[in-house]
């Protein structure tokens, strides 16, 4: 499952309109491809004491130390046993890498503006991080805004 999505694709501009879809419970979420570096299996995590509960630890990705966040915990959902579909999406945000644990990844879709709609703000954890809602093949995809998603973790630096 180790594939490098960004390799060989064009400019980030093109990536913006493409989304990597992944599943948490029965809901489909999407990350804009411009942030996605790669998808990896879940290696053994080294927990770091004294950090937020949703940071599951750090991993060694080819010599780089990368923090891993469990999307479920971040969204306020209960944790789940990892299975063979569980994987980590490695994201690059402000030149910093971080991985997120998701239940499974499904596909990459092209989205046009007409398919996107603005999410209503319910003030809940899950809706706070959304950038848009995508309707594709009669399925609803909640697109997560990476900037918002990590804003709490990055705030000390900006």
């Amino acid at each position: 499952m180790n594939e490098n999505i960004n390799s060989g694709t064009g400019l980030t501009n093109d990536l913006k309109d493409r989304y990597l879809l992944f599943n948490i419970e029965d809901t489909k979420y999407g990350f804009s491809l411009e942030y996605v570096l790669e998808i990896i299996n879940v290696p053994s995590l080294t927990p770091v004491p004294g950090v937020a509960h949703y940071i599951k630890g750090i991993i060694n990705l080819r010599g780089k130390i990368i923090p891993i966040i469990d999307v479920r915990l971040k969204l306020g959902l209960p944790e789940r046993e990892h299975d063979d579909k569980t994987c980590i999406i490695v994201l690059n945000i402000h030149d910093m890498q971080a991985g997120v644990i998701v239940d499974s990844v499904s596909e990459v879709v092209n989205a046009e503006n007409s398919q996107l709609s603005v999410p209503a703000d319910f003030g809940e954890a899950s809706s706070r991080y959304l950038s848009s809602i995508l309707e594709i093949d009669n399925k609803i995809v909640l697109n997560i805004d990476c900037e918002k998603f990590f804003s709490a973790d990055l705030e000390s630096q900006f």
Partner: peptide, 10 residues
């Protein structure tokens, strides 16, 4: 540590 952890002052 990754700069991600800078706010925790490990």
């Amino acid at each position: 540590f990754p700069s991600f952890f800078s706010k925790y002052d490990l």
